[in-house]
Design a protein around this nucleic acid. Structure first.
Lengths: 233, 233
DNA sequence: CCAAAGGCAAGTGCATGCACTTTTTGCCTT
DNA sequence: AAGGCAAAAAGTGCATGCACTTGCCTTTGG
């Protein structure tokens, strides 16, 4: 087992399948409701059905896919309410991370957070969407790590990745870079002066704005179930 | 497929395996670090290794077991820090649920919360440990549901179940029923008057007391890795 | 007496096969 | 033309088999 599979790095075949499929889901390449046929996936990745099945099982355990016994798996469909609940949770989780970060970040962590944040101002000026997006991810990760709580970190990362497909919406909002930077600035300032309450509130607000943008725009429309003959018009 | 397996209710074989194994882990029947041999488990439940493997994969996806490629699976070992981080997270999650409950519970939910809570006072008087424990679980579930946020609900339930093995410690604390009831009372009162902040704080405090009890007492000692000859005395 | 080398048993990882369930299709009825 | 039925096709669920990896144990040379 070496350079066999194309797009994946390492680990067992099952791990590779999990990553490959999860990736296609969170990047939106596979749309909610889309059927995940074991045979096709197996053929697609040139493995047998066994590892594909295991991967689907794991993905369903973490909520990315939905399994209907004897009826195959589909990319998890999130209802409008569930989406809202995830965004709200995300706000609370980010708030916790920010609060903890304000209280617990080491000197080094604070410094590099501040520095990177300042550096990102440049990207805003230049309108470097892609670079800023990359920075943004890193920025939030810093907050999650800065909380110095593994479990919260994990919950937050997991929730964030499940929301990934729905955050693409905000991309098209005009002036969002500047706005995002402003909000980051409030968070960073609060953290730097150790104001946990303010940091928490700012982080929550930051998310809820993303949330609204996503809600308005793109609810990544799910794939319609194939209509059978009887339903044809 | 009907009344074949003894202790499980329904669903596919894999689901049954997941439940059966998860149950043994959260009830502490399987101890952290204990080896989970696919063959033995398969024999134990009278199925082939395939569904056992899938179950172990799913359990590892949710963190209950740990898989070392080519080296088998063990019940997840939680370090002292990780345990602390889970308790802390639990406190925050319960706080969120309590806050939301204070703001969002319907009239019916409030009434039944209050009623059940009052009824539980009787169990405290009688020292009915077992009954109270059952009520306690239900009490917390009410808070999780009362938050009216599916995702938070799920995160909280998942975290709670991972902490289950470590909460057994507090059972032996004298006077804990009365203390627990007092704390519940503070939470209920705050919720009834819609005081989100107070409800959140009370819920967090409630957890942190359980946390301390557990930390002092039982950190369910993990199974030692088998000693090789060179380490024998 | 110890360290490295090699062999063996146990156990994992994946492929394949078959039974069973669901879905589709083609045909017949009304 | 719409509905109903049954057989075929497609697809899932689990068992089994085999190649490979790992850990343990013995052997061998120092």
């Amino acid at each position: 087992m070496s350079g066999k599979r194309g797009l994946v790095r390492s680990g067992t075949t099952v791990d590779q399948m999990v990553r490959a499929i999860a990736d296609r889901i969170v990047t939106g390449y596979l749309r909610p409701g889309e059927k995940l046929d074991e045979g096709s996936l197996a053929a697609r990745f040139d493995v047998s059905r066994t590892p594909v099945r295991e991967a689907l099982g794991q993905l369903s355990a973490i909520g990315l896919v939905e399994r209907r016994p004897n009826r195959g798996a589909i990319v998890a469909v999130v209802t409008q309410e569930h989406l809202a609940s995830m965004f709200e949770s995300m706000g609370e989780l980010e708030a916790i991370c920010a609060r903890f970060s304000a209280e617990r970040m080491t000197g080094a962590e604070r410094r590099s957070l501040e520095m990177e944040h300042q550096a990102s101002a440049r990207m805003v000026q230049l309108g470097a969407e892609e670079d800023y997006e990359y920075f943004n991810t890193e920025f939030h990760s810093r907050l999650y790590r800065g909380a110095h709580n593994t479990h919260i970190h994990d919950l937050t990362v997991a929730t964030r990745s499940r929301l990934a497909p729905f955050r693409r919406a905000q991309f098209m909002l005009p002036g969002r870079l500047a706005k995002s930077w402003q909000e980051h600035d409030v968070i960073v300032t609060a953290i730097m002066r150790g104001d946990a309450a303010a940091a928490g509130k700012a982080a929550r607000d930051h998310v809820s704005i993303v949330s609204e943008a996503s809600a308005v725009f793109a609810t990544v429309d799910p794939v319609e179930p194939r209509l059978s003959r009887s339903a044809r018009r």
